[in-house]
Design a protein around this nucleic acid. Structure first.
Lengths: 193, 193
DNA sequence: AAGCTAGCGGAGGGTTGCCTCCGGATGCAA
DNA sequence: TTGCATCCGGAGGCAACCCTCCGCTAGCTT
Protein backbone atom coordinates (compact mmCIF):
# COMPACT_ATOMS: atom_id res chain seq x y z
CA UNK A 1 0.00 0.00 0.00
CA UNK A 2 2.90 2.30 0.62
CA UNK A 3 4.72 1.76 -2.66
CA UNK A 4 2.52 -0.45 -4.82
CA UNK A 5 -0.89 0.65 -6.02
CA UNK A 6 -2.44 4.09 -6.02
CA UNK A 7 -2.20 6.00 -2.77
CA UNK A 8 -5.74 5.86 -1.43
CA UNK A 9 -7.64 9.03 -1.85
CA UNK A 10 -8.16 9.21 1.89
CA UNK A 11 -4.60 10.28 2.46
CA UNK A 12 -4.60 12.87 -0.27
CA UNK A 13 -6.26 14.99 2.40
CA UNK A 14 -3.31 14.87 4.73
CA UNK A 15 -2.49 18.53 5.31
CA UNK A 16 0.85 20.15 4.60
CA UNK A 17 1.53 22.67 7.31
CA UNK A 18 3.45 21.27 10.26
CA UNK A 19 0.93 22.04 12.98
CA UNK A 20 -1.93 20.86 10.83
CA UNK A 21 -0.24 17.58 10.15
CA UNK A 22 0.43 17.15 13.84
CA UNK A 23 -3.24 17.68 14.60
CA UNK A 24 -4.30 15.34 11.85
CA UNK A 25 -2.17 12.55 13.21
CA UNK A 26 -3.24 13.24 16.77
CA UNK A 27 -6.84 12.98 15.65
CA UNK A 28 -6.33 9.62 14.04
CA UNK A 29 -4.59 8.28 17.10
CA UNK A 30 -7.29 9.63 19.38
CA UNK A 31 -10.00 8.22 17.14
CA UNK A 32 -8.37 4.82 17.12
CA UNK A 33 -8.44 4.80 20.92
CA UNK A 34 -11.95 6.14 21.20
CA UNK A 35 -13.37 3.68 18.70
CA UNK A 36 -11.60 0.79 20.38
CA UNK A 37 -13.02 1.88 23.69
CA UNK A 38 -16.57 2.94 22.94
CA UNK A 39 -17.22 1.34 19.59
CA UNK A 40 -18.20 3.06 16.41
CA UNK A 41 -20.59 5.39 18.19
CA UNK A 42 -17.87 7.14 20.15
CA UNK A 43 -18.46 10.84 20.52
CA UNK A 44 -16.55 12.95 18.03
CA UNK A 45 -16.23 15.71 20.58
CA UNK A 46 -14.52 13.23 22.83
CA UNK A 47 -12.13 12.36 20.02
CA UNK A 48 -11.25 16.01 19.58
CA UNK A 49 -10.74 16.36 23.32
CA UNK A 50 -8.42 13.36 23.44
CA UNK A 51 -6.44 14.72 20.54
CA UNK A 52 -6.13 18.05 22.30
CA UNK A 53 -7.70 19.99 19.46
CA UNK A 54 -10.91 21.92 18.97
CA UNK A 55 -13.95 20.28 17.52
CA UNK A 56 -13.66 22.55 14.53
CA UNK A 57 -10.30 21.09 13.66
CA UNK A 58 -11.75 17.64 13.68
CA UNK A 59 -14.50 18.57 11.30
CA UNK A 60 -12.16 20.43 8.98
CA UNK A 61 -10.03 17.31 8.59
CA UNK A 62 -12.85 14.79 8.60
CA UNK A 63 -16.10 16.27 7.38
CA UNK A 64 -18.06 13.21 8.41
CA UNK A 65 -17.75 10.39 10.88
CA UNK A 66 -17.17 8.05 8.02
CA UNK A 67 -14.16 9.99 6.81
CA UNK A 68 -12.59 9.48 10.20
CA UNK A 69 -13.48 5.80 10.18
CA UNK A 70 -11.89 5.29 6.87
CA UNK A 71 -8.72 7.14 7.75
CA UNK A 72 -8.24 5.08 10.90
CA UNK A 73 -9.04 1.89 9.08
CA UNK A 74 -6.65 2.55 6.23
CA UNK A 75 -3.91 3.30 8.71
CA UNK A 76 -4.46 -0.05 10.42
CA UNK A 77 -4.45 -1.99 7.20
CA UNK A 78 -1.31 -0.24 6.12
CA UNK A 79 0.45 -1.45 9.25
CA UNK A 80 -0.78 -5.00 8.86
CA UNK A 81 0.31 -5.28 5.26
CA UNK A 82 3.65 -3.76 6.01
CA UNK A 83 4.16 -6.41 8.67
CA UNK A 84 3.94 -9.17 6.07
CA UNK A 85 7.35 -8.32 4.71
CA UNK A 86 10.15 -10.70 5.46
CA UNK A 87 7.90 -13.67 6.11
CA UNK A 88 8.85 -15.23 2.78
CA UNK A 89 12.06 -16.41 4.35
CA UNK A 90 10.21 -18.82 6.63
CA UNK A 91 9.04 -22.26 5.49
CA UNK A 92 5.67 -22.08 3.68
CA UNK A 93 3.47 -23.35 6.49
CA UNK A 94 5.22 -21.34 9.17
CA UNK A 95 5.06 -18.17 7.14
CA UNK A 96 1.33 -18.52 6.61
CA UNK A 97 0.71 -19.27 10.25
CA UNK A 98 2.83 -16.37 11.39
CA UNK A 99 0.98 -13.95 9.17
CA UNK A 100 -2.40 -15.27 10.27
CA UNK A 101 -1.38 -14.72 13.86
CA UNK A 102 -0.66 -11.10 13.08
CA UNK A 103 -3.90 -10.91 11.24
CA UNK A 104 -5.74 -12.12 14.31
CA UNK A 105 -4.06 -9.54 16.48
CA UNK A 106 -4.94 -6.91 13.92
CA UNK A 107 -8.59 -7.66 13.45
CA UNK A 108 -9.29 -8.20 17.13
CA UNK A 109 -9.63 -4.53 17.89
CA UNK A 110 -11.35 -3.55 14.68
CA UNK A 111 -14.74 -5.09 15.16
CA UNK A 112 -16.76 -1.93 15.40
CA UNK A 113 -14.80 -0.26 12.67
CA UNK A 114 -15.14 -3.08 10.18
CA UNK A 115 -18.80 -3.41 11.00
CA UNK A 116 -19.38 0.12 9.79
CA UNK A 117 -17.32 -0.16 6.66
CA UNK A 118 -18.65 -3.55 5.62
CA UNK A 119 -21.59 -1.86 4.04
CA UNK A 120 -20.99 -0.03 0.79
CA UNK A 121 -17.52 1.38 0.97
CA UNK A 122 -15.01 1.24 -1.79
CA UNK A 123 -12.37 2.05 0.76
CA UNK A 124 -13.15 -1.22 2.41
CA UNK A 125 -12.83 -3.20 -0.76
CA UNK A 126 -9.61 -1.50 -1.69
CA UNK A 127 -8.17 -2.35 1.72
CA UNK A 128 -9.36 -5.87 1.23
CA UNK A 129 -7.37 -5.98 -1.95
CA UNK A 130 -4.28 -4.82 -0.10
CA UNK A 131 -4.70 -7.48 2.53
CA UNK A 132 -5.13 -10.12 -0.11
CA UNK A 133 -2.05 -9.10 -2.00
CA UNK A 134 -0.12 -9.32 1.25
CA UNK A 135 -1.46 -12.69 2.41
CA UNK A 136 -2.51 -14.64 -0.65
CA UNK A 137 1.02 -15.35 -1.89
CA UNK A 138 1.81 -16.98 1.44
CA UNK A 139 -1.22 -19.18 1.02
CA UNK A 140 -0.40 -20.12 -2.56
CA UNK A 141 3.12 -21.01 -1.61
CA UNK A 142 1.87 -23.26 1.17
CA UNK A 143 -0.57 -24.92 -1.19
CA UNK A 144 2.14 -25.44 -3.79
CA UNK A 145 4.27 -27.05 -1.12
CA UNK A 146 1.39 -29.40 -0.34
CA UNK A 147 0.97 -28.34 3.26
CA UNK A 148 -2.41 -26.66 2.76
CA UNK A 149 -5.43 -28.25 1.13
CA UNK A 150 -6.20 -27.19 -2.40
CA UNK A 151 -9.98 -27.03 -2.31
CA UNK A 152 -10.21 -23.66 -0.57
CA UNK A 153 -9.27 -20.11 -1.43
CA UNK A 154 -7.53 -17.41 0.52
CA UNK A 155 -10.80 -15.63 1.12
CA UNK A 156 -12.10 -18.72 2.87
CA UNK A 157 -9.14 -18.57 5.19
CA UNK A 158 -9.59 -14.89 5.84
CA UNK A 159 -13.16 -15.38 6.88
CA UNK A 160 -12.40 -18.39 8.99
CA UNK A 161 -9.66 -16.59 10.85
CA UNK A 162 -11.21 -13.17 11.08
CA UNK A 163 -14.32 -14.70 12.50
CA UNK A 164 -12.21 -16.21 15.21
CA UNK A 165 -10.96 -12.87 16.31
CA UNK A 166 -14.42 -11.57 16.89
CA UNK A 167 -15.01 -13.94 19.73
CA UNK A 168 -13.54 -12.77 22.97
CA UNK A 169 -11.21 -15.23 24.59
CA UNK A 170 -10.66 -15.43 28.34
CA UNK A 171 -7.01 -16.27 27.80
CA UNK A 172 -4.47 -16.04 25.00
CA UNK A 173 -3.89 -19.75 25.48
CA UNK A 174 -7.41 -20.61 24.52
CA UNK A 175 -7.29 -18.28 21.59
CA UNK A 176 -4.18 -20.00 20.31
CA UNK A 177 -5.65 -23.43 20.91
CA UNK A 178 -8.74 -22.58 18.92
CA UNK A 179 -6.67 -20.95 16.24
CA UNK A 180 -4.71 -24.18 16.12
CA UNK A 181 -7.88 -26.17 15.53
CA UNK A 182 -8.85 -23.87 12.70
CA UNK A 183 -5.39 -24.17 11.20
CA UNK A 184 -5.62 -27.95 11.36
CA UNK A 185 -8.68 -27.63 9.21
CA UNK A 186 -6.51 -26.03 6.55
CA UNK A 187 -4.30 -29.07 6.27
CA UNK A 188 -4.71 -31.45 3.37
CA UNK A 189 -6.37 -34.75 4.33
CA UNK A 190 -3.02 -36.38 5.10
CA UNK A 191 -0.47 -33.60 5.24
CA UNK A 192 3.04 -34.13 6.57
CA UNK A 193 3.59 -32.10 9.67
CA UNK B 1 -34.19 -23.37 30.10
CA UNK B 2 -37.87 -24.01 29.94
CA UNK B 3 -38.06 -26.91 32.35
CA UNK B 4 -34.57 -27.43 33.78
CA UNK B 5 -32.86 -24.79 35.88
CA UNK B 6 -34.36 -21.72 37.53
CA UNK B 7 -36.56 -19.59 35.33
CA UNK B 8 -34.39 -16.56 34.66
CA UNK B 9 -35.34 -13.54 36.63
CA UNK B 10 -35.87 -11.62 33.42
CA UNK B 11 -39.14 -13.35 32.77
CA UNK B 12 -40.45 -12.94 36.26
CA UNK B 13 -41.38 -9.49 35.01
CA UNK B 14 -43.72 -10.79 32.38
CA UNK B 15 -46.98 -9.04 33.21
CA UNK B 16 -50.23 -10.79 33.98
CA UNK B 17 -53.01 -8.77 32.49
CA UNK B 18 -53.88 -9.81 28.94
CA UNK B 19 -53.31 -6.48 27.22
CA UNK B 20 -50.10 -5.93 29.13
CA UNK B 21 -48.74 -9.31 28.12
CA UNK B 22 -49.64 -8.60 24.51
CA UNK B 23 -47.71 -5.35 24.63
CA UNK B 24 -44.78 -7.00 26.34
CA UNK B 25 -44.49 -9.60 23.61
CA UNK B 26 -44.95 -7.04 20.86
CA UNK B 27 -42.12 -5.01 22.37
CA UNK B 28 -39.74 -7.93 22.37
CA UNK B 29 -40.57 -8.74 18.78
CA UNK B 30 -40.16 -5.13 17.74
CA UNK B 31 -36.90 -4.85 19.63
CA UNK B 32 -35.54 -7.96 17.98
CA UNK B 33 -36.23 -6.44 14.59
CA UNK B 34 -34.90 -3.03 15.46
CA UNK B 35 -31.68 -4.38 16.94
CA UNK B 36 -31.14 -6.63 13.97
CA UNK B 37 -31.63 -3.69 11.69
CA UNK B 38 -29.85 -0.82 13.39
CA UNK B 39 -27.61 -2.58 15.86
CA UNK B 40 -27.57 -2.11 19.59
CA UNK B 41 -27.97 1.64 19.34
CA UNK B 42 -31.44 1.43 17.82
CA UNK B 43 -33.77 4.10 19.09
CA UNK B 44 -36.06 2.92 21.87
CA UNK B 45 -38.74 5.27 20.67
CA UNK B 46 -38.56 3.53 17.35
CA UNK B 47 -38.98 0.20 19.08
CA UNK B 48 -42.11 1.46 20.81
CA UNK B 49 -43.41 2.76 17.50
CA UNK B 50 -42.85 -0.58 15.78
CA UNK B 51 -44.59 -2.36 18.60
CA UNK B 52 -47.52 0.03 18.32
CA UNK B 53 -47.32 1.13 21.93
CA UNK B 54 -46.43 4.35 23.70
CA UNK B 55 -42.93 5.02 24.87
CA UNK B 56 -44.19 4.92 28.44
CA UNK B 57 -45.23 1.32 28.01
CA UNK B 58 -41.79 0.41 26.84
CA UNK B 59 -40.16 1.98 29.87
CA UNK B 60 -42.59 0.43 32.27
CA UNK B 61 -41.72 -3.03 31.01
CA UNK B 62 -38.03 -2.42 30.46
CA UNK B 63 -36.65 0.28 32.72
CA UNK B 64 -33.35 0.36 30.86
CA UNK B 65 -32.03 -0.47 27.45
CA UNK B 66 -30.18 -3.36 28.99
CA UNK B 67 -33.37 -4.91 30.34
CA UNK B 68 -34.69 -4.98 26.83
CA UNK B 69 -31.46 -6.43 25.49
CA UNK B 70 -31.52 -9.19 28.00
CA UNK B 71 -35.13 -10.08 27.41
CA UNK B 72 -34.58 -10.37 23.67
CA UNK B 73 -31.42 -12.30 24.15
CA UNK B 74 -32.92 -14.79 26.57
CA UNK B 75 -35.77 -15.37 24.20
CA UNK B 76 -33.33 -16.19 21.38
CA UNK B 77 -31.30 -18.56 23.49
CA UNK B 78 -34.42 -20.27 24.63
CA UNK B 79 -35.33 -21.03 21.04
CA UNK B 80 -31.88 -22.27 20.18
CA UNK B 81 -31.70 -24.63 23.11
CA UNK B 82 -35.16 -25.91 22.46
CA UNK B 83 -34.10 -26.75 18.91
CA UNK B 84 -31.45 -29.15 20.21
CA UNK B 85 -34.04 -31.71 21.16
CA UNK B 86 -34.32 -34.79 19.04
CA UNK B 87 -30.79 -34.59 17.70
CA UNK B 88 -29.67 -37.44 19.93
CA UNK B 89 -31.23 -39.85 17.49
CA UNK B 90 -28.70 -38.97 14.80
CA UNK B 91 -25.20 -40.50 14.69
CA UNK B 92 -22.78 -38.66 16.98
CA UNK B 93 -20.92 -36.68 14.34
CA UNK B 94 -24.03 -35.79 12.39
CA UNK B 95 -25.84 -34.66 15.50
CA UNK B 96 -23.02 -32.36 16.50
CA UNK B 97 -22.74 -30.91 13.02
CA UNK B 98 -26.46 -30.37 12.77
CA UNK B 99 -26.58 -28.52 16.04
CA UNK B 100 -23.61 -26.39 15.12
CA UNK B 101 -25.34 -25.43 11.92
CA UNK B 102 -28.30 -24.22 13.92
CA UNK B 103 -25.97 -22.45 16.23
CA UNK B 104 -24.44 -20.61 13.31
CA UNK B 105 -27.82 -19.53 12.07
CA UNK B 106 -28.67 -18.40 15.57
CA UNK B 107 -25.63 -16.33 16.32
CA UNK B 108 -25.47 -14.72 12.92
CA UNK B 109 -28.06 -12.11 13.72
CA UNK B 110 -27.02 -11.51 17.30
CA UNK B 111 -23.77 -9.72 16.84
CA UNK B 112 -24.75 -6.39 18.25
CA UNK B 113 -26.73 -7.94 21.04
CA UNK B 114 -24.00 -10.25 22.20
CA UNK B 115 -21.47 -7.45 21.94
CA UNK B 116 -23.38 -5.53 24.57
CA UNK B 117 -23.94 -8.40 26.91
CA UNK B 118 -20.42 -9.77 26.73
CA UNK B 119 -19.37 -7.33 29.35
CA UNK B 120 -20.46 -7.99 32.91
CA UNK B 121 -23.83 -9.63 32.72
CA UNK B 122 -24.88 -12.58 34.73
CA UNK B 123 -27.72 -13.04 32.30
CA UNK B 124 -25.16 -13.69 29.65
CA UNK B 125 -23.34 -16.29 31.68
CA UNK B 126 -26.56 -18.01 32.62
CA UNK B 127 -27.53 -18.20 28.96
CA UNK B 128 -24.11 -19.53 28.22
CA UNK B 129 -24.77 -22.28 30.70
CA UNK B 130 -27.99 -23.13 28.95
CA UNK B 131 -26.29 -23.32 25.60
CA UNK B 132 -23.60 -25.53 27.02
CA UNK B 133 -26.04 -27.93 28.58
CA UNK B 134 -27.75 -28.19 25.21
CA UNK B 135 -24.64 -28.65 23.09
CA UNK B 136 -21.97 -30.19 25.27
CA UNK B 137 -23.56 -33.64 25.48
CA UNK B 138 -23.50 -33.83 21.70
CA UNK B 139 -19.82 -33.04 21.74
CA UNK B 140 -19.02 -35.56 24.47
CA UNK B 141 -20.87 -38.25 22.64
CA UNK B 142 -18.93 -37.52 19.47
CA UNK B 143 -15.68 -37.60 21.37
CA UNK B 144 -16.62 -40.86 23.04
CA UNK B 145 -17.35 -42.30 19.62
CA UNK B 146 -13.89 -41.22 18.52
CA UNK B 147 -15.04 -38.93 15.75
CA UNK B 148 -13.94 -35.71 17.45
CA UNK B 149 -10.48 -35.03 18.83
CA UNK B 150 -10.09 -35.26 22.58
CA UNK B 151 -7.73 -32.38 23.25
CA UNK B 152 -10.33 -29.64 23.03
CA UNK B 153 -13.39 -28.65 25.01
CA UNK B 154 -16.84 -27.62 24.02
CA UNK B 155 -16.09 -24.01 24.75
CA UNK B 156 -13.31 -24.12 22.19
CA UNK B 157 -15.80 -25.30 19.62
CA UNK B 158 -18.30 -22.64 20.55
CA UNK B 159 -15.77 -19.91 20.05
CA UNK B 160 -14.49 -21.34 16.83
CA UNK B 161 -17.94 -21.59 15.36
CA UNK B 162 -19.46 -18.45 16.77
CA UNK B 163 -16.56 -16.48 15.43
CA UNK B 164 -17.35 -17.81 12.01
CA UNK B 165 -20.80 -16.43 12.10
CA UNK B 166 -19.61 -12.93 12.72
CA UNK B 167 -17.98 -12.72 9.35
CA UNK B 168 -20.39 -11.84 6.61
CA UNK B 169 -20.41 -14.30 3.76
CA UNK B 170 -21.31 -13.34 0.22
CA UNK B 171 -23.00 -16.69 -0.29
CA UNK B 172 -24.35 -19.51 1.86
CA UNK B 173 -22.11 -21.84 -0.13
CA UNK B 174 -18.98 -20.13 1.05
CA UNK B 175 -20.23 -20.06 4.60
CA UNK B 176 -20.80 -23.78 4.50
CA UNK B 177 -17.44 -24.41 2.91
CA UNK B 178 -15.65 -22.46 5.59
CA UNK B 179 -17.72 -24.10 8.27
CA UNK B 180 -16.64 -27.39 6.77
CA UNK B 181 -13.00 -26.44 7.10
CA UNK B 182 -13.52 -25.55 10.72
CA UNK B 183 -15.31 -28.83 11.34
CA UNK B 184 -12.44 -30.73 9.75
CA UNK B 185 -10.25 -29.17 12.39
CA UNK B 186 -12.37 -30.90 15.01
CA UNK B 187 -11.57 -34.34 13.66
CA UNK B 188 -9.05 -36.51 15.44
CA UNK B 189 -5.70 -36.78 13.59
CA UNK B 190 -6.90 -39.83 11.64
CA UNK B 191 -10.63 -40.06 12.13
CA UNK B 192 -12.76 -42.41 10.10
CA UNK B 193 -15.27 -40.51 8.06
C1' DA C 1 11.18 40.34 10.03
C1' DA C 2 7.06 41.03 8.23
C1' DG C 3 3.02 39.82 5.80
C1' DC C 4 -0.04 36.51 4.03
C1' DT C 5 -2.92 32.86 4.56
C1' DA C 6 -3.83 28.20 6.14
C1' DG C 7 -5.29 26.64 10.15
C1' DC C 8 -7.15 26.95 15.01
C1' DG C 9 -10.64 26.78 18.86
C1' DG C 10 -14.91 26.67 20.82
C1' DA C 11 -19.45 29.12 21.37
C1' DG C 12 -23.90 28.13 20.08
C1' DG C 13 -28.10 26.70 17.49
C1' DG C 14 -30.39 22.60 16.05
C1' DT C 15 -31.60 17.78 16.34
C1' DT C 16 -32.30 13.49 18.39
C1' DG C 17 -33.05 10.34 21.81
C1' DC C 18 -33.75 9.42 26.87
C1' DC C 19 -36.87 9.00 30.49
C1' DT C 20 -40.62 10.80 33.83
C1' DC C 21 -45.13 11.72 34.96
C1' DC C 22 -49.99 11.69 35.17
C1' DG C 23 -54.84 11.94 33.41
C1' DG C 24 -57.47 8.62 31.07
C1' DA C 25 -58.71 3.83 29.51
C1' DT C 26 -59.55 -1.01 30.32
C1' DG C 27 -59.30 -5.92 31.84
C1' DC C 28 -60.82 -8.64 35.67
C1' DA C 29 -63.10 -10.13 40.00
C1' DA C 30 -67.12 -10.14 42.58
C1' DT D 1 -72.50 -4.45 36.12
C1' DT D 2 -69.76 -2.13 38.70
C1' DG D 3 -65.53 -0.71 40.90
C1' DC D 4 -60.83 -0.54 41.10
C1' DA D 5 -56.23 -1.83 40.34
C1' DT D 6 -53.53 -2.13 36.57
C1' DC D 7 -51.96 -0.45 32.52
C1' DC D 8 -51.89 2.87 28.67
C1' DG D 9 -50.12 6.89 25.73
C1' DG D 10 -47.48 10.64 24.71
C1' DA D 11 -46.29 15.56 26.12
C1' DG D 12 -42.38 17.63 27.71
C1' DG D 13 -38.04 18.55 30.29
C1' DC D 14 -33.31 17.19 30.00
C1' DA D 15 -28.88 15.81 28.22
C1' DA D 16 -25.81 14.56 24.64
C1' DC D 17 -24.14 15.14 20.42
C1' DC D 18 -23.76 17.12 15.79
C1' DC D 19 -21.92 20.56 12.96
C1' DT D 20 -21.26 25.55 11.43
C1' DC D 21 -19.21 29.80 11.70
C1' DC D 22 -15.98 33.38 12.52
C1' DG D 23 -12.49 36.12 15.01
C1' DC D 24 -7.85 34.99 16.26
C1' DT D 25 -3.12 32.44 15.97
C1' DA D 26 0.94 31.10 14.07
C1' DG D 27 3.66 28.56 10.23
C1' DC D 28 5.83 29.52 5.96
C1' DT D 29 7.80 32.43 2.32
C1' DT D 30 10.44 36.14 0.54
Amino acid sequence: MTSAGQAPEVFARRPKRADARRNYDALITAAREAFAEHGAAASLEDVARRAGVGIGTLYRNFPTRRHLFEAVYVEEVRELCHSAEGLAELPPWDALVAWLHRFVAYVATKRALAEQLLHDSEIFTSCRTEIFSAGEPLMRRAQAAGVVRNDIGFDDVVRLISGLTMAQFPSPEQRDRVLGVALDGLRPPAAPR
